[in-house]
Simulated assay, not measured.
Amino acid sequence: MQSYDTLVEALDDLTKKGYTHDFNIADDCLICHTPNVQLRPEQFHIVDVFRFEGMSNPDDSSILYAIESTDGMKGTLVSAYGAYADEVSNEMMEKLKIH
Rank of each mutant, 00 (worst) to 15 (best):
G72W: 11
Y84Q: 13
I67V: 11
R51T: 15
V88Q: 15
L77D: 12
S69I: 08
K17D: 09
V49A: 06
I67R: 04
N24G: 02
I25K: 02
S79R: 15
M55G: 06
D48Y: 06
V49K: 10
S62N: 09
D71W: 11
Q2P: 04
Y84L: 13
C29V: 01
E94I: 09
K95V: 06
H99N: 03
R40A: 00
E87R: 13
G75W: 11
V88T: 15
D5H: 05
D86L: 11
C32K: 04
M55N: 10
I63R: 06
Q2Y: 05
L39V: 00
Y4T: 02
G18H: 02
K95E: 06
G82Y: 12
M73A: 14
L96Y: 07
K74H: 11
Q2N: 08
L7V: 05
F52A: 11
H21C: 00
T20Q: 02
K17H: 07
D22Q: 00
L7S: 08
L77M: 14
I25P: 01
H33A: 10
T20R: 03
D5M: 04
M55I: 11
L64R: 04
E91K: 14
D22W: 00
F23W: 01
S3N: 07
F44N: 04
L64W: 09
K97E: 08
D5V: 03
V47N: 10
D13A: 15
I46G: 05
A85I: 12
V47H: 09
S3T: 10
K17F: 02
I67F: 05
Q38D: 01
S3G: 01
G54R: 08
G82P: 12
M1W: 05
H33G: 07
V8E: 13
D28W: 02
L77R: 14
D28F: 02
D60Y: 08
K17C: 05
G54N: 06
Y65T: 02
N57R: 10
N36C: 04
L30W: 06
N36S: 09
S79K: 15
D28S: 08
I67N: 03
N90L: 14
L96W: 08
I31P: 03
H45Y: 09
T15D: 12
M73Y: 11
Y81I: 13
